[in-house]
Design a protein around this nucleic acid. Structure first.
Lengths: 155, 155
DNA sequence: GGCTTACTACTCGGATACTGCTTGTCCGAGTTCAGGGGG
DNA sequence: CCCCCTGAACTCGGACAAGCAGTATCCGAGTAGTAAGCC
């Protein structure tokens, strides 16, 4: 149950894109900024694009750009864009299989085990949705110099 | 980011063991109860045993038995026993790599991205720790007949 | 000199191999029980 | 009749393959910019 690395990459890349100043930035430059494999980062950015977080402009001087400010992007948006929105606990209804399944009457209500796990998962998603990238940027930002450095790294 | 099936298997098996009445039950019988592959379920039960949730008795008439009542077992105990206690978001400190890492001074505090993800994960763990298996059993239990059926399935 | 047009270079986008982990399986060490033999 | 011993069967425990999702990579489609040719 390890989260994909792409989530970490996407989060840092989104923060960098905000610093870049709005213009489109190519995936190779974004990859160089953190020493990531460019083609694979590109794949993740495409998923962010499909989710509506990024806009992609083809051609020279093209690249990816944010579609909305950081305070309108939550951690949940990014996680769902990269990982998908499937539950991490997937009930396979084993209560209906095997000898117990044969001997018991078919259950009517939903599986209580699944319910309990879903409740916990919901509070995780809630916490993710409560965090915007703007808040993270505020923790990260130590001065105007940082912006200059990132803009230089993305050149 | 899919949770291992072993968690679902372990949860149902723990509930069944409680119904069985305290005596040790072999892994093959527990597997037959839900139509699961016996050797692999055995592997999971060993992990529960190492975590202290189960006691294993070897030899004929041996098997696994609960070490404490269901109201002293939380979902978190089971998840940690099967999945391990590693964070699902693992920060690889990419902020220190690539051009940004070279141009920026080495950061002093912890990574804000990691902090934010850890906060969400903590609330997930909190929710897991707040749910005991006894509560799930209460939702599941529809009458004294069910206990009879499960005891019959484990014979 | 200005406009059109063809070309080039650069971007994204999806299709294609590779790796590590989850899943599934097997066989050996240890223990209890049962049965037979002896006292 | 009771006790001891030997054997066998059954259990857990860890070591060994297979499948699949995540990881990494490559090449093609499309577009903007540019430069040359023509009016």
């Amino acid at each position: 149950m390890r989260m994909a690395k792409g989530v970490e990459w996407a989060l840092h890349t989104l923060l960098n894109l905000d610093m870049a100043g709005g213009g489109p930035v190519g995936s190779s430059q974004l990859a160089q900024a953190h020493g990531l494999p460019a083609p694979y980062l590109n794949k993740q950015l495409q998923q962010l694009s499909r989710a509506g977080l990024l806009a992609s402009t083809p051609g020279p001087r093209g690249g990816f750009s944010l579609t909305r400010p950081l305070d309108a992007i939550t951690l949940l948006d990014v996680v769902q864009a990269i990982e998908g929105d499937a539950d991490m606990f997937q009930c396979t209804e084993i209560r209906c299989c095997g000898r117990i399944g044969e001997l018991s009457p078919r259950p009517t209500g939903p599986c209580p085990v699944k319910n309990a796990m879903s409740r916990a998962e919901a509070s995780w998603r809630e916490a993710l949705a409560a965090q915007t990238l703007a808040e993270i940027k505020a923790e990260l930002d130590t001065g105007p110099v940082v912006g200059e450095i990132i803009r230089a790294a993305l050149r």
